[in-house]
Nucleic acid binder design. Structure first.
Lengths: 125, 125, 125, 125
DNA sequence: GTGGTCTAGACCACA
DNA sequence: GTGGTCTAGACCACA
């Protein structure tokens, strides 16, 4: 269903949260689209319902989904907002890493060079 | 002594490993300088000797320290090697983050702009 | 269960790490196969859980196993990678020994002859 | 004096034993040559006399030295015998490693190739 | 005294 | 129940 493989070292609930967020951001899940119920998804994935519950709770907390009582859970109607949050998180993380590299004596040019390489590689694929 | 605050969520042994690695890389600890003994540091930090032992074990595994039996532990005599490992780790991490941003539609120019900002800020301080 | 004899001079945790790595490489343990839980194996071997924990930690560090939180530990899904590491370690060790023999004046032909003998013996068995 | 650096992870007494054996085998120490006294060497190396005592004991046990009561310790008068022991030890070690590689599926030709490489490299230097 | 190993047992997050 | 972390404390080799 969700194509989630659980052999990772990350806690399952985090994997799920990440995966669903990813699907929302890539358009695999659309705005206001309903998500499977806790029980259904738990059965599908062969996972404890508590684990699904936890992932769904996190998704709601970070604004990826909303719930309508008695109806179920749905993808947010403002995916763009989620994207913005993710972008700013990513930039914050890069900031941390770059600071680390500065402390280690890596120059601006070297960092830029690395970033360029990645863009070249990814652009092709 | 080591100015280690243990209020983080990170396991104590990891905090210690990180802290000492940092001190080695910033020059606060010099090549071949002796580290406090397991028992001494444990007493200083109010922590169990096993926890120190574990951190010291990790430091040795990653090449930050070496131990001389019956004598104690010392900072590696090749700090530069540690630095190289840390740099390549940092670059790998940036790679991951940049890929993430590409997926989110952030352009090359925007990423570069962010990196430049950080360099400007850090260069001043 | 694991047929581990703990009468060696090697630390128990190292014996265990070695034994399990061996079982993985010889196919006695298959990819993604679950390992006994820390507590279970500790009881089986009459050894402290911490000692098992330590061995399991090493196995994870060297990529022989992975752990899924709340579920347990499993044999890596890429045994071939472990094999490659072990081969390169073995070759490095032979290198050291051969250098030693060269220093002692042993000729190329003599070393080769010894290697051939071992292959003959092992091929038969 | 003996050019021994003690920053290794090996116990000092083992380092000393190895170093002196090496000096005997390379001709740096000659047959029947006297060794420094325990006290003298301990002072020279800034090491506990017990440690020297222990190394000297091992050297005598493996036939590298002999002691004349009241006179001191001397290099064996049959260095060739020491060499033979070392050679057979080296061959035994290679045997172990080769067996390991056979278990890992490495072919005879590959091992030979590696040995040849090392000979080529060492022959030049 | 110094590090290395191990036992005994508690507590936590995760499932 | 399962792994991860930590405390408390013993014993050993090495110096």
């Amino acid at each position: 269903m969700f194509g989630i493989s659980l052999n990772n070292r990350l806690p399952i609930h985090e994997q799920l949260t990440e995966k669903i967020t990813d699907m929302v951001l890539t358009g695999a899940l659309e705005e206001n689209e309903p998500l499977p119920s806790v029980r259904e998804l738990a059965a599908d994935l062969g996972v404890n319902p508590n684990t699904i519950q936890r992932a769904y709770g996190e998704l709601e907390r970070i604004g990826v989904t909303y719930s309508v009582s008695g109806k179920g859970r749905f993808v947010t109607d403002d995916i763009e907002a989620v994207r913005r949050v993710k972008v700013s998180e990513g930039i914050k993380n890069i900031g941390k890493e770059v600071k680390e590299l500065i402390k280690l004596g890596v120059s601006y040019t070297e960092v830029i060079e690395e970033v360029r390489k990645i863009y070249d590689r990814e652009a092709k694929s």
